[in-house]
């Protein structure tokens, strides 16, 4: 039973990390119907920035909690800046181009960012310090869930709540929803669509950066390639939940997290990464709209 619980909570943690990244995919897709291939790289850059800041601050002799907060903050700022810039360079000039062009441009951006970090930093795995202390009150449960996992779950929940509030109740949120319904109409009623798109990229990048810092500190090492697999899995989660739907992305992430956790726990860990892909193919064949997605009505 404990083993089951451990896998269950492990899956939950995994799922919440996927959710933080999947949100970016789903929000961008909801607004401009583009798979932002470079999103995984934004997450990776968030983790790298955090690692660099942490190393600098540690050498300056700061205490760990302060380091975690500052590093997280700077990572979010930088990821947002990258997300914003990527949109301006690789997607904005292609707003009216065929979808295939934007998609290829996105792949190019992803390839560029990976190699940019590879060349400027290193191709090796770098150790990422575990900054989340083991809380003493968690000790009785340590065999089931670690303190780090608790922190991840709590942070994810807070981020989700903030995001929901932002989209449901603010003026920007309303503009985002309007834009995702009909871009031309939104423009006609005076919404600055370009700004809405930029904000969407920035928001998605921010959640991805939070995810990046949390998972890096949980797993304990990073390299330039972590964004690729994490990005694909988060995308699978977004599709599973119904791409374009925010609650769908969260639900899809948990389902994927549990599937992977149980499959590697009970079946085999050799094919860990295969599960996500097989899952993806199955969903797309049997329920392309995802769990919470609306069936698309193509306009003719």
């Amino acid at each position: 039973m404990d083993y089951f619980l451990e896998l269950f909570l492990g899956g939950l943690t995994r799922g919440s990390i996927y959710a933080l990244i999947a949100l970016g995919y789903t929000m961008v897709y909801g607004i401009i119907e583009l798979i932002n291939f470079a999103h995984g790289e934004i997450y990776m850059i968030g983790a790298f920035t955090a690692l660099i800041v942490i190393s600098v601050l540690t050498m300056m002799g700061m205490n760990t909690i302060a380091i975690l907060v500052i590093a997280g903050f700077i990572a979010v700022i930088y990821s947002c800046a990258y997300g914003y810039t990527v949109e301006k360079i690789a997607y904005k000039p292609l707003r009216r181009a065929p979808r295939l062009s934007a998609l290829i441009s996105a792949i190019g951006m992803s390839l560029f960012l990976q190699n940019y970090v590879l060349l400027a930093q290193t191709s090796d795995f770098l150790p990422f310090p575990n900054l989340i202390p083991d809380f003493t009150f968690m000790e009785p449960y340590a065999h089931i869930i670690s303190s780090a996992e608790v922190v991840i779950l709590i942070t994810t929940t807070i981020v989700m709540i903030l995001l929901t509030v932002l989209i449901k109740f603010t003026k920007m949120g309303k503009a985002m929803r309007a834009t995702s319904q009909d871009k031309d109409m939104a423009r006609l009623v005076g919404i600055d669509v370009d700004r809405v798109i930029s904000v969407t990229f920035v928001l998605g990048s921010a959640t991805a950066a939070i995810g990046g810092v949390l998972i890096a500190s949980h797993v304990g090492m990073i390299n330039f390639y972590i964004g690729f697999i994490a990005g694909i899995k988060a995308f699978v989660a977004a599709v599973l939940g119904g791409i374009g739907s925010i609650p769908g992305a969260v639900l899809g992430s948990f389902v994927l997290g549990w599937t992977e956790s149980f499959a590697t726990g009970y079946v085999s860990s050799d094919y860990e990464d295969v599960f996500a892909f097989v899952f993806l193919v199955l969903i797309l064949i049997f329920r392309p709209a995802g769990i919470l997605g609306r069936t698309e009505k193509h306009t003719v």
């Binding site: 360079i89 292609l94 065929p98 290829i104 441009s105 190019g108 951006m109 390839l111 560029f112 060349l119």
Partner: peptide, 20 residues
């Protein structure tokens, strides 16, 4: 040669933006 993939990435973006 180490810049190869970096260049390919730039190439994809630039081609799509300017000469699809």
């Amino acid at each position: 040669s180490e810049y190869r993939m970096l260049m390919f990435g730039i190439l994809l973006v630039v081609m799509m933006v300017f000469r699809p």
